[in-house]
């Protein structure tokens, strides 16, 4: 893994609430370095998904700021988002009626000419890149299939291919292996580790401690919207994580 610790993502003092009730996030800060995997752990309702949406710009913080490679992330319900930040939601957000290749190609929409893309005319090199990504992820033969016909692990790979199609500097993945069996989860996270090794900063949320122990360079634990642990992954981290999660 690369030793570059340049912060690709800097989130500082993030506060967010969906209503007047208790905030979902309370003053959470984090940094994620290029070439590393940061795993955000927390039980359901601890604020993990909200944190990733703030980092992506799908939500705007009530207080605090997010920067990606030094550039501020500006949220807006209908504004164009930064294609350099890839986001994989918990249930992947694939268009089920579309084919696998079409889903992957959506990753290129942020950089291709708009009008031809509306007529499904995408540059040949983008088509080749999408096919190559599918080959790399082991589902090259599924390009023409509809997403609804794929298995869970294959859908995960399609979502990763779409994210990589964006040529991301930062990859945000929200609980995206939580519904897979152990072996498939490991396969997927090994792929993610390879992506990080290419210099992409990866932030993955999960509630599974074992994944943090095995794959994280940095572990962050959220509890009730607050960060209660943020440290480099070490052999003894697993005990600290368990204590932090339990409170």
């Amino acid at each position: 893994m690369t030793a570059d610790r340049r912060p690709a993502l800097e989130a500082s003092d993030l506060w967010f609430s969906y209503s007047a009730r208790r905030p979902v996030l309370r003053g959470v800060s984090l940094t994620a370095a290029a070439g590393e995997i940061t795993i955000v752990l927390g039980v359901s309702g601890s604020g993990k998904t909200t944190l990733l949406k703030l980092c992506k710009g799908l939500l705007g913080p009530q207080r605090g700021a997010v920067r990606v490679l030094g550039e501020p992330v500006v949220a807006g319900r209908r504004r164009r988002l930064d294609p350099g930040v890839a986001y994989i939601p918990q249930h992947l957000g694939l268009v089920r009626n579309s084919g696998v290749l079409d889903n992957v190609l959506t990753g290129a929409l942020g950089r291709v000419a708009e009008l031809p893309s509306l007529l499904r005319r995408l540059p040949e090199d983008e088509l080749r890149r999408a096919q190559a990504l599918l080959e790399r992820l082991g589902i090259g033969g599924k390009a023409a299939e509809k997403v609804y016909a794929l298995s869970g692990g294959e859908r995960q790979r399609v979502a990763i291919a779409r994210a990589l199609m964006q040529r991301p500097r930062l990859l945000l993945a929200d609980e995206f292996v939580s519904q897979l069996d152990v072996l498939t989860s490991r396969d997927i996270l090994t792929i993610v580790r390879g992506i990080a090794a290419e210099g992409v900063a990866v932030v993955v949320t999960t509630h599974e401690m074992e994944l943090a122990d095995r794959y994280a360079d940095t572990v962050i634990v959220l509890r009730d919207g607050e960060k209660v642990l943020d440290r480099r992954a070490q052999a003894e981290t697993i005990t600290d994580i368990a204590l932090a999660l339990r409170g």
Binding site: K53, K56, L58, R80, L81, D82, P83, G84, V85, A86, Y87, I88, P89, L92, G93, L94, V95, T106, G107, A108, L109, G110, R111, E114, A159, R162, M165, Q166
Partner: peptide, 9 residues
């Protein structure tokens, strides 16, 4: 959200 996040119009 997933498709918006690719930076499309």
């Amino acid at each position: 959200e997933a498709v918006r996040s690719v930076g499309c119009s």
